[in-house]
Write a protein that binds this DNA or RNA. Structure first.
Lengths: 359, 359
DNA sequence: TTGTACGCGTTATCAG
DNA sequence: CTGATAACGCGTACAA
């Protein structure tokens, strides 16, 4: 109960000045070991913890970063937050988490509100390609890193995945398995990364002279996605394979197919995006593009930390490679449609090639 | 770029005193409309945001709560954080999120570190029944609410679910479907809530004179759970139904069964815990106990907020009811083993009865 | 090692 | 009753 102890309380108990306590606890200046010990003991006896508000006010240092994501319900963002938190914790940073519920306006207002913390940095997954929090961040001078969705126009530190290449690999995989008529289930084409995925497969089919994939937008949440998919399937010729561009879309496809008693992969093959335990656990296991979530977080954090520490780096865009895990949900339905030896033999687990590259 | 504007900057621009700016922005004291407007304009022209550190230092108010969970990778806790964040946002509170990685020591040190923020309150899911952060929280005098896992001994505000009743309902459901030999897949029996679930089914089987369930501890992560389950199934007589006590255990069971080509529900029935989209999406859909996550969060937040606002309430324990969603993964294998009309007819979606009750 | 000014809003006090 | 002035909260940084 009662009020929390202050540094002066510790100082009094240890019989030293507040300044010394500050020096000991922040090990800023060398202090006589004997004194240091007394101070430490006094501090722990009182369960004393430096007040970050006071500390920040004087020193300007906070050790906190704000993390802004479109939604915490989406397991992809949840996992992202989880691994960023882990990285931050290693460096003794805390994170303030905020979700924008997929609203541009909310993004703006959340960023604005979070600025009042004067955080050391921001990690942002923009809600849309408009990235409406950007202006505020730029004006603030606080370093930030954008993850997953590329900001338009001006460069900024950005950590993305090679969506196009990953989708091309999926296209090749499906062609190699003999699939000619495929359906692409996108969440929303408003997002650049989704468009890249969509155009990736499309490009592959186009280049190889195959019929272009059909495309359906299914929305961002599970229920909607399921229903959209179900409707589409009821009103169109059944494709031989479906490529879902997000984890939610994947789940929607699985549910829709299940409801329509369409079997995977007997009746239709399925490739998902994002890789979650349930995709591996279920029967059939789902062939899916795995995003390097941990690497993304590590890279984003590393970059942000450098900037926080004052490094003067040019804005850079990182594009990490994805990985296609081929599992049971894709079935060979005919001879390979991939010409030449180009992709003659796909390894069971195919790595989408490409390395980091500059913006 | 550059330094952030201060309240004095705004005051100067608006031609008033800093105190007036403070009064306007915090609408604390009535201020002439004309002046107020000038101040608002000046503030927004400068993108001014009050510095929370300075504000807290003087006023003692923070509008931030710390949320401590065992793991952010676990979708149950991730969802919990998501909905708490949503509640908090409505009341203009930010949340600082921290995970203990299922370590008691980390829980203690995380709580200790978070105290340096002087948050308005804590929401804690204890890592273990030891609840090693408790001492610190009690000494701090900061209000806190415990969620999901009950603290031992002394009462504290706690929001739980009726684990026993939920598990009993699962027992009745399985008996009603004619299942005599069942296996309970627990994560770890170190946790009271898991023991309650385990003992719930066990109790039901015992009371009705049926063979007691077998029990296997499968650990807290997916891979381990899958392997433990696989091993158990290889070395024991196959049960007619499996009840998994957590979402991770459920996933592990699904994966193990899939790997062993044991069909659900043809060869074995399955009841899971926690309710996620993938359980509904897959074929067969998984019969599962749904925890009222949103209600839990709302209640926890409401309670915490009352305390933050100074309400002097006696510690209380809330136990919310769960819901058993009967789906395709449980199959009738024989006549009902539930005597009398007691549970003669189970509705397709059975609600585990019981209401909130006092500690 | 310590005294002390300082950072930036807030609040109590005071003036108009 | 409105608005300004000044003290204050609690660590930190710099001079002593």
């Amino acid at each position: 109960m009662g009020k929390r102890p202050t540094m002066s309380d510790v100082a009094r108990l240890a019989g030293v000045s507040p300044a010394t306590v500050s020096n000991v606890l922040g090990n800023r200046k060398p202090v006589e070991p004997a004194l240091a010990e007394r101070v430490q003991k006094a501090a722990s006896d009182l369960d004393y913890q430096v007040d970050r508000a006071a500390s920040r006010l004087r020193s300007g240092k906070t050790n906190v970063v704000a993390v802004v994501v479109p939604s915490l319900e989406n397991p992809f963002f949840a996992s992202l937050v989880a691994s960023i938190e882990m990285e931050a914790q290693k460096d003794n940073y805390d994170i303030i988490v905020s979700s924008t519920n997929e609203s541009d306006a909310a993004e703006h207002s959340r960023v604005s509100a979070l600025l009042s913390w004067r955080p050391s940095g921001f990690v942002v997954v923009p809600t849309s390609d408009r990235f409406s929090g950007r202006h505020l961040l730029d004006r603030s001078g606080i370093p930030y890193v954008v993850v997953d969705r590329a900001p338009p126009d001006q460069p900024a530190d950005t950590v993305l995945v090679q969506n196009t290449q990953a989708a091309e690999a999926v296209g090749e995989h499906l062609l190699d398995y003999g699939h000619r008529e495929i359906l692409v289930a996108a969440s929303s084409l408003d997002l650049l990364n989704i468009r890249e995925r969509s155009e990736g497969v499309r490009g592959t089919y186009e280049r190889l002279g195959q019929p272009l994939p059909s495309l359906v937008e299914v929305g961002g949440d599970f229920e909607t996605a399921t229903e959209s998919l179900r409707l589409w399937l009821l009103t169109h010729k059944r494709p031989s394979a479906i490529f879902a561009l997000t984890n939610v879309a994947t789940l929607g496809v699985v549910a829709a197919l299940s409801r329509l008693s369409i079997r995977v992969p007997a009746d239709v093959s399925l490739v998902g995006f994002d890789d979650y335990a349930w995709m591996r656990a279920m029967t059939p296991s789902i062939t899916a593009v795995r995003q390097p979530l941990i690497e993304m977080s590590k890279l984003a954090w590393q970059r942000l930390r450098s900037r926080i520490q004052g490094a003067d780096l040019p804005a850079r865009q990182f594009k990490l490679q994805c990985h296609l895990d081929i599992r049971q949900s894709t079935k060979i339905v005919g001879p390979s449609l991939v010409q030449g030896g180009k992709v003659g033999l796909l390894p069971l687990s195919k790595t989408v090639k490409a390395k980091r590259n500059r913006s």
